[in-house]
């Protein structure tokens, strides 16, 4: 079995054999990757608001970064400031609203609409943070690759295990299907997010992310998610700010 059950991982952790590196004192040099802050290409004509898929994916990428570093909104706000994006992501509340526009989110009351400029700002922030964390992302990915090649349990690799534990924990507590979604499925999602972050950590990462987002097939949302994809599209097309309550 490639991805073990959580109980199995917990028992491994208790033995103390495998978690030799703590996430927060891992010996990574900070790296400076010069990001090319090119103007991202415009999206498809008429797309004034982010689709549910775009909103969900941006939030999941931020969740991945958070799971890698242990940092949360402070890092995002600092990045927004460094990139002069305060008008789009002004403070913690604004960020909370943007992230809670993800249709997969449990919480209600957040704003549902994210306009395309706000999505673009989040893309730049994600590229910036991924570049900052490039060394950690790469090391985690290398551990994962070594584990897969040697048919070892990825959860037993210190960096991968820490990342997956964090991601699973955040996903379970924040997403509407967190209680019911199969653990292997969340683990697979976490690993795919990790792989994507590697590619977005490049100086060309933001353009890659933007292009991929605009071409990403529509995501299936659980029936009880706050907003279905078609609702978002209709609302975006009508230019309405009024969204159905969850």
């Amino acid at each position: 079995m490639l991805f073990p059950e959580r109980g199995q991982v917990a028992s491994l952790a208790q033995t103390g054999d495998h978690r030799v590196l703590s996430k927060h004192n891992a010996p990574f040099d900070s790296v400076t990757v010069e990001h090319k802050h090119t103007l991202l290409d415009n999206g498809p004509d008429g797309l004034s608001a982010a689709t549910g898929t775009i909103k969900a994916h941006l939030d999941l990428l931020l969740l991945g970064l958070e799971s890698l570093s242990g940092e949360s909104s402070e890092a995002v706000l600092a990045a927004a400031q460094a990139l002069n994006l305060q008008d789009r992501i002004a403070d913690r509340v604004a960020l909370w609203r943007l992230r809670n526009a993800n249709p997969l989110r449990r919480s209600s009351g957040g704003r549902k609409k994210v306009d395309i400029e706000e999505a673009r700002a989040l893309v730049l922030v994600i590229g910036h943070l991924a570049a900052q964390q490039q060394a950690r992302i790469r090391s985690t990915l290398e551990q994962l690759e070594a584990a897969v090649e040697q048919e070892r349990n990825p959860f037993r690799q210190p960096l991968v295990g820490d990342y997956l534990d964090e991601f699973l924990s955040h996903y379970r507590s924040r997403m509407v299907d967190g209680d019911v979604r199969d653990e292997n499925s969340i683990t697979e999602l976490a690993l795919r997010i990790l792989i994507e972050l590697m590619f977005y950590s490049s100086p060309r990462g933001t353009q890659r992310l933007w292009t991929a987002l605009l071409n990403r097939p529509a995501m299936d949302f659980p029936p009880n998610s706050e907003l279905q994809e078609e609702d978002v599209a209709q609302a975006a097309n009508s230019g309405s700010d009024t969204f159905p309550a969850s």
């Binding site: 792989i195 890659r208 292009t211 097939p217």
Partner: peptide, 9 residues
């Protein structure tokens, strides 16, 4: 190919 990876397919 990488584009298709990043689009999830």
């Amino acid at each position: 190919y990488v584009g298709s990876q990043l689009q999830g397919e």
